[in-house]
Amino acid sequence: MFIHFKTNTLRLGIVILALNANVILASDLKISVVDEKEQPLPWTVVYVKQNKVLNQKKQIIVDQVDKEFTPYVTAIQKGNAINFPNNDNIRHQVYSFSKAKQFEIPLYSGNPLRPVTFDKTGVIAMACNIHDWMSAYVYVVDSDKFIVTNEQGKGVISGLNAGEYQVLAWHPKLKGESVDTTQSINIGALDTQIKFALEKKTLLKSWRAPKNNRRRGY
């Protein structure tokens, strides 16, 4: 009985140690992205370069509402698919000529027949052929640790084990080549913070508001 008690205590100790080890090793990376005027920069994809990637299949949706794509920027893991429902009461025609994925969904309303699979990393710029101002981006990464910053230019990547990492940032309107979009970081026991300051172009998309109707073009 004494031997049983010692064995059970030993087992309990190992479990407690293992649990604590997980708590110690996995931390959050708190991300902040600003532009050249120190203003929050939403729609920035920030991801961690990994040697081992956990393949996660997710349901991803890029919607069309009030003649706009929602969201403007979507980050997905390589091999995942995106569904493009059209919740407008009009038809759209979605296309992309980007090298990472060329596709076209001809004029449709409601749900298209099948989602589009993105199996190459890179940038995919999409648009609607009917409504010229409609544009959006998909950024495909070979990582399972990534976020897209919110309106406040912030995001959190959770569950990072201790170690050295390269963290990369991308925004659809990055200006020029001389922008610091890669940082090395050491993840430790506590949550880590990282800040990117990116220079971006002024325009997000082309003109949508009505033009003076002397032109008589809708």
Binding site: D66, E68, W207, R208, A209, P210, N212
Partner: peptide, 16 residues
């Protein structure tokens, strides 16, 4: 010459 200011996706103010 016409200068437009987009008040929203659906409205604009123009000076021409």
């Amino acid at each position: 010459a016409n200068i437009s200011y987009a008040l929203s996706n659906h409205t604009a103010l123009d000076l021409a």
